[in-house]
Amino acid sequence: MTSPSIPNRGRPARLDRAKTVGTALELLDELGLEALTMRRLADRLGVQAGALYRHFTTKQDLLTAMAERMLGDVQVSPGAADWAERLRALARAMRRALLAHRDGARVFGGTHSVGPHTLAFAESVLGVLREAGFKDEDAARTLMAMVNFTLGHTLEEQAATAPLENGTPEDPDRLRSAVLAGSYPHLAATLPVLTSTDFDAHFEFALDVHIEGLRHLRPRAA
């Protein structure tokens, strides 16, 4: 009788797709996207690299599954808030989900998951807009604009705060020095905001701009 703590010799470890994705996210958080390779993931799982391709044909397939898992963490409390507040809540929830993982936005960018978490998020956004009276065409384009804006903002946010090879974040003094060394009066006047790392404030301002634009678009739907 074989001890349950000792695997049978010659028997390959059994791979579980969900566990593989979870382990990939753990490696992502530890090492970053550049260091996340199929071989390193296989080593962590205790299998041969070729075994991973039974579940994921390419690394891009793995990244798509990881992006899908990230959106599974999007949680928005139900409530009777108006459409604008519900839309804000969904955008904030997506940003939080991407920020929850190192290089989360880079992983998500370029993936086109049709998994249940991705579809549920899109369904929620479209539901808010259609119930508010927006045309189907405008609702669909608003979904794409909101996802692209949130992804782009988070991508820049994570790039600005990611440690460099020497272990320190990108120095905002580089921009300050370049601006002050030349004749850029408008840039110089706005440097305090341009070099600010208050990404919450940056995100909320841009989100307000989106919402106000939608308010002007909405009467067309009526």
Rank of each mutant, 00 (worst) to 15 (best):
A188W: 00
N166Y: 08
R14D: 04
P192T: 04
H101P: 02
M38V: 12
M66L: 05
A67H: 08
E131S: 10
P4I: 06
I211R: 04
A84V: 06
L27W: 01
F134L: 05
A100K: 06
P219Y: 09
R54P: 02
A206W: 00
G152S: 15
T111V: 03
L98T: 03
F205L: 13
F121Q: 02
V47P: 03
W83L: 07
D200M: 00
E30T: 12
R130T: 10
F56L: 01
T195Q: 09
T20V: 12
P169Q: 08
A65K: 01
R14C: 04
A18D: 15
G115L: 12
G109S: 14
L31F: 07
S5R: 14
T20G: 07
E26N: 03
L31C: 03
L187F: 15
M66A: 02
D138E: 08
D73E: 15
R106C: 03
L62Q: 01
T2K: 13
A51S: 15
H117M: 08
L129Y: 06
T58S: 13
G213T: 11
H55Y: 14
F199M: 00
P172H: 08
T154P: 05
V76C: 11
R40V: 06
F199H: 04
A89F: 04
E137A: 07
G104N: 07
V114H: 13
R9D: 07
T23L: 08
R215S: 00
A100M: 01
E157A: 08
T37V: 01
R96C: 02
L180F: 04
R106G: 09
P116L: 11
G213R: 10
D103L: 05
R88D: 05
H216D: 04
G50A: 14
R54E: 11
K135L: 11
T190L: 09
T190R: 09
T195P: 05
Y53G: 05
E204V: 03
E212Y: 10
G182R: 11
M146F: 10
D138A: 09
A97S: 14
V125G: 01
A24L: 06
A122S: 11
E68W: 12
A67G: 15
L164N: 08
P172E: 09
A80R: 12
